[in-house]
């Protein structure tokens, strides 16, 4: 659970960490990409995933470039972004309804089976999802240390005004961050869709859960998000196992509230940095 959750959480963290804009549509956009992948799955699995993820990257880019960046330049506040990104989410959910007239789909990817250790068995996909998230994180870190692009991202996330003044193309950085965030959400949705199933409204679950988990970890803090995703995933699994599925969200959200009362900035603090 935590493994799959870590991908949309990472998406939220990348977008918020760099742009400072909370994008609540990210889950719906990711699920949109999941449906696109499903549509092309009969041709070739690799191609289908590439198309789905690519579509999400482009959507993320465009939404940021034509909508969110201009609004942020005009000084939009958090409430405005909340409403606008929710609206964007409904637009994509509506498009899903119109383009793929099926209430839910299941992505038939080749199963890897379960991996068992220490008496527990874990679905292979969950492990792969987690490794994918960690791998992405390491790549981002390496880029920050060794490439000009990575350094520009980091600079933009730490001091937007100065980043502009020294000549970083911050608009472009924002668009790429948003594209990557949505692409990660899509990969999360693909894993989700192959383990469970994807419904038209799954994007909201994925997006909000991703957001809440990111806030608990310290929003914008990628490591915090990852740790939080693992903890929350375990909480959900165990509460579901011990008390039954219907109590899962009750337990989860009580813990969320508790954590945020104790540590309002999340587990690792919400320094807006990558």
């Amino acid at each position: 659970m935590g493994g799959i959750l870590s991908l949309p959480v990472l998406g939220v963290a990348v977008i918020y960490g760099i742009t400072g804009i909370p994008n609540f549509a990210i889950g719906v956009i990711g699920v949109f990409g999941g449906f696109v992948t499903w549509y092309f799955l009969s041709y070739s699995m690799g191609l289908a995933i590439a198309i789905g993820v690519g579509v999400c990257f482009i959507i993320g880019w465009i939404v940021q470039r034509v909508l969110l960046t201009p609004i942020s330049e005009m000084g939009g506040d958090a409430t405005l972004f909340f409403i606008i990104t929710i609206a964007v989410g409904f637009v994509f959910e509506g498009m899903l309804r119109a383009i793929f007239p099926r209430p839910n789909i299941s992505l038939e990817l080749p199963r890897i089976g379960t991996i068992s250790f220490a008496g527990y068995s874990v679905e292979g996909f969950k492990i792969i999802a987690l490794l994918f998230a960690i791998g992405t994180l390491i790549i981002i870190r390496l880029m920050e240390e060794h490439t000009e692009v990575g350094k520009s991202w980091q600079a933009t996330s730490q001091n937007l005004k100065l980043a502009k003044l020294i000549g970083i193309k911050t608009t472009q950085v924002f668009s790429i961050a948003s594209g990557i965030g949505c692409a990660l959400a899509c990969i999360g949705a693909i894993f989700w869709g192959s383990l469970y199933n994807l419904q038209l409204s799954s994007g909201w679950d994925l997006g909000f859960l991703g957001f809440i988990v990111a806030v608990v970890g310290g929003i914008g803090n990628i490591w915090g998000g990852l740790i939080s995703a693992l903890i929350m995933g375990m909480v959900m699994s165990f509460s579901g196992y011990l008390l039954g599925g219907e109590w899962q969200s009750v337990i989860l959200y009580c813990i969320v509230i508790l954590v945020l009362i104790i540590a309002p900035k999340g587990i690792l603090g919400s320094e807006r940095s990558l």
């Binding site: 350094k151 520009s152 980091q154 730490q158 005004k161 100065l162 980043a163 020294i166 000549g167 970083i168």
Partner: peptide, 23 residues
Amino acid sequence: IPQEANIFPMMSVKKNLEVSVIL
């Protein structure tokens, strides 16, 4: 060079300079 917030606070000194040569 602004009066305040004129560095990248969470980056090393070296990286602050490295990112500034971008143009």
